[in-house]
């Protein structure tokens, strides 16, 4: 109960979409600049200034995008579930929109992690795909994202969609460790001697720099695009509220619109 009140205090400030938009428009240019800056630096180190690995040769360069993408896949799901929880427990309209805005970004990063992993796997292991525990659990994560997006768009009333999908995000979040654990075990049962190990030997600084830079670039990109998408979602909420007013007739006062906005935004 205290936790609830505490959370309410913290989150209350940005529950108002207008105030949130003000904050977002200050952050957005910085996020954009950070994305481009980190991306250029990361690409320089990843493609030009770092040596090939003595074991993996030049293909190690795929790691600099593959591993950050995989990190982002996990991070986005956690962020989405956290935002969904805040939206459900504290009825925080912007948090629900944040969860909605995060899902497509997370799905894209998950796809990229799978795609680049597959391209890395072909020269390294000689196959595009193995039912390795980690690959399988990331594939399932991808489907969880797809399910979330499908559910959030499956209702005529978007408010219903975002509530239902918030519940799904939480259920999926509980299930992610279970999936991870079960898939790990499933894999060890079927192939006891696993030759495949994603993380190579102790990582060298020349490889760590591009890795970290790319991770920062991806994270900044996430913040940038997420804020854009939240803005779009807020606009959609306002449009729906205005349309509703028009249908019901009568000149809308400013306060009723704001009320409707927060309501529609949920």
């Amino acid at each position: 109960m205290y936790l609830y009140k505490f959370g309410k205090m913290i989150f209350h400030k940005y529950a108002n979409p207008t105030r949130f938009l003000k904050l977002a428009s200050t952050i957005q240019p910085w996020a954009a600049a950070a994305t481009i800056g980190f991306l250029l630096a990361g690409l320089y180190f990843a493609l030009l200034s770092s040596p090939g690995d003595y074991q993996q040769g030049e293909t190690v360069r795929i790691m600099y995008i593959h591993v950050p993408a995989a990190w982002m896949a996990m991070f986005c799901y956690t962020a989405m579930a956290a935002a969904a929880a805040v939206g459900l427990i504290w009825k925080h309209p912007v948090a629900e929109l944040a969860a909605r805005a995060t899902a497509p970004i997370g799905a894209c990063f998950t796809f990229l992690a799978l795609f680049t992993g597959s391209l890395w796997g072909k020269p390294m292991w000689g196959t595009w795909w193995v039912w390795d525990a980690r690959l399988t659990s990331v594939l399932i994560l991808f489907f969880l994202y797809l399910g979330y997006m499908a559910l959030s768009n499956a209702f005529d009333d978007p408010a219903r969609g975002s509530k239902a999908s918030s519940i799904l995000a939480l259920v999926g979040f509980v299930n992610v460790p279970i999936i991870k654990f079960s898939v790990d075990w499933w894999n060890t049962l079927h192939q006891p001697a696993s030759v495949i190990k994603m993380d190579g030997p102790a990582i060298h600084a020349s490889m760590l720099i591009p890795l970290i830079l790319m991770a920062f670039a991806f994270k900044a990109f996430y913040i940038w695009v997420m804020l854009m998408r939240i803005r779009g979602e807020i606009n959609e909420g306002k449009i729906r509220a205005l349309r509703l007013r028009q249908v019901h007739g009568g000149p809308p006062s400013r306060t009723t619109i704001l009320e409707k906005t927060t309501e529609g935004a949920r």
Binding site: I140, G147, A150, A154, F155, I179, F181
Partner: peptide, 27 residues
Amino acid sequence: ALILGSRRGGVLLSLLVLPLYIPVLIF
């Protein structure tokens, strides 16, 4: 429960539920 009142419920249901079924199947 989640798909109540949604469009194209049946297909959606399998998309939601099948990933969550995997642990039970594996064990």
